[in-house]
Write a protein that binds this DNA or RNA. Structure first.
Lengths: 151, 151
DNA sequence: CATACAATGACATTCACTTTCAAGCAGACA
DNA sequence: TGTCTGCTTGAAAGTGAATGTCATTGTATG
């Protein structure tokens, strides 16, 4: 277990005791799987990974755990409008997404200058900005390379 | 019936005959309601308006019609990740949204310079951009004014 | 320990949306 | 105009993601 992971787990335990909630085997397993994956994912992916090792883990528990991680500031909800709620590890405040239309991978990045400019445009329309999301869809370099190989 | 509306309806009839599809009373009613509304909306809003005049119109028919309008290039799907699919009239290629967290209104605008810059950033990450969506959430000036009045 | 009460998991439910299917209707062609 | 093909419709049933229910289990704390 690396340093970052240990720190996150500490943070989570602190959150639990502050709220009078309890640490359980399931939550620990789900948090491990989530952190080990180290990329944004949707719940069924985690669920399948976990079922491989622990067949008795429940669907609803994974949903509940991820929502809990989000409210603890460990995970960030990502909603790309495809009907699935994804979660990413909440380091920093990235809200710019590159979504590959081929493989579905979601890459996150942050670009402060665009956001500042965009927010200013909104203000000029009399709009008070609270949050911002930029979503770029296309083809990632990996899929592009594969497509090249086929032709 | 104004000029723009007539033009859109012509475009739709052309689309239908090209595809071997049929013009029906329902499709005409739904298209009228959609164009008359003149702002992005979700299906239930249209459905309720239509039910007022024509009680026999079906839920599924409205869904089907809007999908049809989208594939005819008349409507544009807007997916803001709140679980509702909205539709806007497809004039131009706007894909920047101001969503009011208070009243839920969706205002669309376009900002070419941001998009060009953003696409360039993506390319530098080896990503080929196909489409772009910018979503700003906050409070619109109307709601802001009302909030001011209360305090 | 013992006890209170949070958490779990199987199941049912919700919510937006889609599909099914029998009946109806549009449009082409004679 | 009549007929006939097959697209459309509407009610109801079905999907699929996510959440609620509830009896049972497990955990932290006294």
């Amino acid at each position: 277990m690396n340093q970052t992971k240990r720190k996150v787990k500490e943070q989570f335990h602190l959150f639990l005791s502050n709220k009078g909630l309890k640490g359980t085997l399931q939550r620990s397993l789900i948090l491990d799987a989530f952190l080990d994956l180290d990329r944004s994912t949707h719940i069924d992916e985690l669920y399948l990974i976990l079922r491989g090792k622990h067949p008795n883990i429940g669907h609803a528990t994974v949903y509940r755990a991820l929502r809990l991680f989000a409210s603890a500031g460990i995970a960030r909800e990502i909603n790309l409008g495809d009907g699935l709620t994804r979660y990413g590890v909440a380091g920093g405040r990235r809200h710019d997404y590159l979504v590959c239309n081929d493989c579905g991978t979601v890459t996150e990045f942050e670009n402060g200058s665009i956001e500042r400019y965009q927010a200013e445009v909104a203000r000029s329309m009399g709009f008070t900005v609270q949050s911002l999301k930029i979503e770029l869809r296309g083809v990632c370099n990996r899929c592009m390379a594969q497509a090249g190989r086929h032709s």
